[in-house]
Design a protein around this nucleic acid. Structure first.
Ligand code: FES
Ligand code: FES
Lengths: 156, 156
DNA sequence: TTATATAGGACTATTTTAGTACTATATAAG
DNA sequence: CTTATATAGTACTAAAATAGTCCTATATAA
């Protein structure tokens, strides 16, 4: 299924909300109301995003969170990494030595390539794209040329 | 982390092994020996691949499995789908109505775009690429142009 | 000094995944 | 036609990852 976690999904919702008013502080309690995500969960996500330097935090009364940069410079790949850790499609690509058949493995290099391809696809979409109404064309031009098509064959 | 499951990883190892002799039948017991994956697990993977029409099966004595087509026509996206189900990065993109904030959601369309971008990246790599020694250049040309770069920032 | 808001970590419940086992069915060969 | 062999299908258990919550510490504005 290759899914991002729920928390990552929340992160995009929350960041999209914040990106609408990029110059204001947003407290966790405000975001709860706007997004219908439970407060403890919102809080958890905000902490992770802050730790990953996507958000700046301000403690104390009238505190809250703020984007560290313009939405155009926040990539989806970065958001996923902030919540789930480094993007690595297989265990083998993460820690060397974790896999038993590593020495005789011919496909490790290919997984690295796949990894890179996916990463780049995720890097091509930014928070600015999420805030804006969907401009399909704008994203399409960043896709692999050979496989550019309209029927995705993603059915069940 | 955005990982494929272990079973999917096994599937690529197993398929790569089979693709080396694409015209011979391969029994589960043979594959176990060649890949160091436990028999019941190999068996499970082979059944899934067969069900997804990536492999043909032959029962009975001297039976085994065989690729349904040339390795060049087996995409990684297909392998992942065979083992894990349809590639869909968020719950929202899979079943309509599953998400509470769906009606007011502005980012659903964008997730579909991301989904498509990832799918195409995965479609660009085939089983033939897995069998061959890594030809980095061959894959690079199929990557998003805007983001074509060498430093992946995937560190831990 | 107090109210408010984030930081950090610990913890539990739930869900997903991995791995195994068992029964049924098909096929080749003697 | 009987037997050995190999896949089909399903059900089940154990392990791991995820989701969600809560508690204590710390910083800041008023
Ligand atoms: S290194 Fe683990 S399967 Fe290749
Ligand atoms: S439809 Fe679920 S978050 Fe958008």
């Amino acid at each position: 299924m290759l899914r991002v976690s729920k928390l990552t999904d929340y992160a995009t919702v929350i960041l999209t909300h914040i990106a609408h008013q990029p110059d204001e502080l947003h407290a966790a309690s405000d975001i709860t109301q706007a997004t219908d995500v439970a407060l403890p969960t919102v809080s958890k996500v905000l902490k992770l995003l802050s730790k990953a330097n996507i958000l700046n935090s301000h403690r104390g009364s009238k505190g809250g969170y703020l984007l560290t940069r313009t939405p155009k410079d926040v990539h989806v790949a970065e958001i996923i990494t902030a919540i789930e850790g480094p993007i690595a499609m297989t265990e083998c690509t993460t820690h060397t030595g974790a896999c038993e058949q590593e020495s005789s493995c011919e496909i490790k290099g290919n997984w690295n390539l796949i990894n890179r391809a996916v990463y780049m696809a995720l890097e091509a979409v930014t928070l600015a794209d999420m805030v804006a109404p969907v401009r399909q064309q704008a994203v399409m031009v960043n896709m692999p040329l050979k496989t550019q098509t309209n029927d995705l064959k993603v059915e069940n």
